[in-house]
């Protein structure tokens, strides 16, 4: 069944001009980004699509490492929910990480990422699960009561409606007080993508606008 689905996934660069209109990228940047996509998507199977294994391999240089957050990032990139990324999904998602992308898109993306159960809010248990996962990834041990006090403190600050959950509005207010929470949402590399992958000019189909 999965194999059938991947057969239907579009491959290749597609229409770079249309993608440039849908994203903050220029046509040249879309073509340079496609060079990166080709590298990542050919790491395990050269089929023009990025699997979760290839995504993890690009992030951690190993397919062994399991990360709750790499999983969540992949799932949010995978808007067609087919378990694989085509170039359009990749470009649309990475556009949010561009330094020129609207801050509201970054705030929204990160909220969705942290909203593990996709209920429209973040509850204590989800937050604790993410803290525990982060500590485990980093090989750090913190006593449960210390973790609980970190969660308590966070909810005291963020949960201004005192209903035991952090909704999108509360998340937005928290981020505005702590802009560093968005630091992972901006990749300077995307601004220099045409110089990082200059080989795109050899494959360029169009003159940039």
């Amino acid at each position: 069944c999965d194999a059938d689905l991947s057969q239907q996934q579009p491959r290749g660069l597609g229409n770079p001009e249309a993608l440039a209109r849908e994203t903050v990228f220029s046509v040249s940047e879309i073509e340079a980004l496609y060079e990166l996509f080709k590298k990542i998507s050919s790491a395990v199977i050269d089929d023009g699509l990025i699997t979760k294994d290839e995504f993890q391999l690009a992030l951690f240089k190993t397919t062994k490492k399991e990360s709750l957050f790499a999983d969540r990032v992949f799932d949010l990139f995978d808007t067609k929910h087919k378990g694989i990324l085509d170039f359009k999904e990749f470009a649309l998602a990475l556009s949010i990480f561009h330094p020129n992308a609207p801050i509201n898109d970054k705030i929204e993306f990160l909220f969705q990422l942290y909203d593990l159960k996709q209920q429209g809010f973040i509850k204590r248990q989800e937050l604790k699960q993410m803290v525990v996962a982060t500590l485990a990834e980093a090989g750090m041990n913190l006593a449960d009561d210390v973790i609980e006090s970190i969660i308590d403190k966070t909810f005291e600050e963020a949960d201004t409606k005192h209903d035991g959950k952090i909704d999108k509005e509360e998340w937005r207010n928290l981020v505005l007080h702590h802009p560093s929470l968005l630091k992972n949402m901006t990749l300077q590399y995307l601004k220099d993508i045409t110089t990082t992958f200059p080989s795109f000019v050899f494959h360029s189909q169009v003159d940039d606008v």
Binding site: D71, V73, L113, M130, H178, N184, L187
Partner: peptide
């Protein structure tokens, strides 16, 4: 110090959230 951070600051340190590595091909 993780204990002085709020939970989201701590989570943002996760390597899984740092996509810079995608460009290190």
């Amino acid at each position: 110090q993780p204990t002085s951070m709020n939970a989201f600051e701590l989570i943002s340190m996760s390597k899984g959230l740092n996509l810079e590595n995608l460009f290190d091909t």
